[in-house]
Design a protein around this nucleic acid. Structure first.
Length: 191
DNA sequence: TGAATGATTTACT
DNA sequence: GTAAATCATTCAA
């Protein structure tokens, strides 16, 4: 599971849309351990229409909507019949940067293009339509990419999960400027 | 049928 | 640093 999360970092995420094709390297990901992880939607083995994808075969996309305005993408990595998943938190834009910038209302090259769960989804045009897609086929799929230095840290945005929040299950590429910053904290100290 | 909550981001003070 | 935006999903009655 953690292996999968670590493995996900460095892969290339590609999404082909009618408008064009966008691709980027995953530079940040978090592991979510289904039943035992209070931070996971599938905590306690809860199986709902929303988490259904996580109970399916691995290699699929689990996409969900939160806070009334943001989408999140996960790689389903169900291994031991448990609803495990890896949340993709940040991506380094490679292809279709202009398209991403357009969708995000920013300028190409802006580091804020996809350095956050909600941001990357907007940049990649990932929404409900991508729910349950096979990540081995078009239009949304993964491919191998160059590996950088990996680092790990506690997860972000799941403080309510108690002890589980402290688990160092967040993997990211060290020194990559496209890795997201701490939540909430913003504006004041610019990078 | 109705109320509460969230794997976030952005804006303002 | 604090607060608001905003809606699908979930839990309670």
């Amino acid at each position: 599971m953690l292996t999968v999360a670590r493995d996900a970092v460095g892969k290339i995420l590609v999404h082909e849309t009618p408008e064009g094709r966008v691709a980027g390297r995953i530079v940040e990901a978090e592991a979510y351990r289904g039943p035992e992880d209070r931070a996971a939607h599938s905590y306690g083995g809860r199986r709902t229409p929303r988490t259904e994808a996580m109970f399916g075969p691995p290699g699929f996309a689990y996409v969900f909507f939160v806070y009334g305005m943001h989408w999140h993408v996960n790689l389903v990595t169900t291994r031991d019949l448990a609803p495990h998943a890896v949340l993709i938190r940040a991506v380094e834009p490679l292809e279709g940067v202009e398209l991403m910038a357009e969708r995000r209302g920013l300028t190409p090259g802006d580091r804020n293009l996809a350095n956050g769960p909600g941001k990357l989804c907007e940049a990649f045009a990932i929404d409900k339509r991508c729910y349950g897609l096979d990540l081995c086929k078009r239009p949304l799929f993964l491919s191998d990419g160059p590996r950088g230095k990996l680092a790990r840290s506690p997860r972000i945005g799941v403080d309510y999960a108690g002890e589980w929040a402290a688990r160092p299950w967040r993997f990211f590429e060290a020194g990559n400027p496209f890795v997201s910053r701490a939540p909430g904290g913003r504006g004041k100290k610019r990078t």
